[in-house]
Design a protein around this nucleic acid. Sequence first.
DNA 1: TTTACTGCAAATTATTTGCACGGTT
DNA 2: AACCGTGCAAATAATTTGCAGTAAA
Lengths: 178, 178
Amino acid sequence: MTAPQAAPGDNAHAAPTTAPQTWAERARAELQRAGYRRGGAREQLIDLLARERCALTIQEMAARLQDAYRRGANPRPVGIASVYRGIELLAELALVARVDVGDGIARYERASVENSDQDRDHHHHHHFICDRCGLLMPFDDQALEQAIVALEDRVGFSVSGHEVLLHGACSDCRDARR
Amino acid sequence: MTAPQAAPGDNAHAAPTTAPQTWAERARAELQRAGYRRGGAREQLIDLLARERCALTIQEMAARLQDAYRRGANPRPVGIASVYRGIELLAELALVARVDVGDGIARYERASVENSDQDRDHHHHHHFICDRCGLLMPFDDQALEQAIVALEDRVGFSVSGHEVLLHGACSDCRDARR
DNA sequence: TTTACTGCAAATTATTTGCACGGTT
DNA sequence: AACCGTGCAAATAATTTGCAGTAAA
């Protein structure tokens, strides 16, 4: 993925906005700042991700956009390639985070701004995956975050993000096994 | 993957061994207990994993086994399908852990026994991935482990394992970007 | 002798890419 | 007008599966 030749309305040096934004607003602003245009597929993808709380697969995203098209909510179909391309771009700009739960299928969800509350949708979390039924469950834990922040200073690298994944059996599956 | 019809020499109810084992010993013992036989490819795969400290891709494992064959160290070639099948089996028995670092390629490494020191090779760790050059670096942190153990009691699930992945730039890449 | 294990090659499935057309700036 | 963004279909690449022969118990 290569960035466009130039950013026509490049406002990178404008005074930063401090008012809280939604994730979608921030995403559109950063895309524009980086010189990208607003295509139909990209816009629809942003709206879709903005609506979701937790991670979706590419197939799920494509299916939902396809449904919206059939339902008449969207003017034209969105090809799966555009979903891949859109996600790739959003991931590069760190606007979405990839989540791998171990089944070999990539999932993505909107990323929160680290150490900031500028984002009204902010909802940093991690995941629990049920290895029996595949249930994906988000959770957050303040003590864990603190341990990770402390750790980040100790490792000799520049840490830009982190993920924690818990494996196990959800309550239904735990009961079912008996 | 379906387990064999029966476990001929099933010793599941024998008195448990308390002497520390290597990972390879434990792996072979558990495979046998579950009724699996000792095939050439599986044996070679176990030896390979036992030698490695950190995660390998399937391609890397296949290449090393292929090299060993060419070098004459192994009697016959190992097909990549056998590597996939062997890893799948070891993963089911929780003898290896899958590590996803976000590039869409599955990696595996031997798993340590949770809360136990029966395994001489025991080396529980997590990973740092350089998103620029792909360097994969293992690390461990006692405070992090404690935070996760505490957390496991709080979530409403039966947690069998966990993974932590730090993203960022390694020292070389951090310097190179300047 | 029975049934598991294996290599090879074919089949799937996720993901990427080439290309011509329509849209945004 | 210039060049980006998109859908579609073809091309890749990872992973899985079918099958016939070999080996473990």
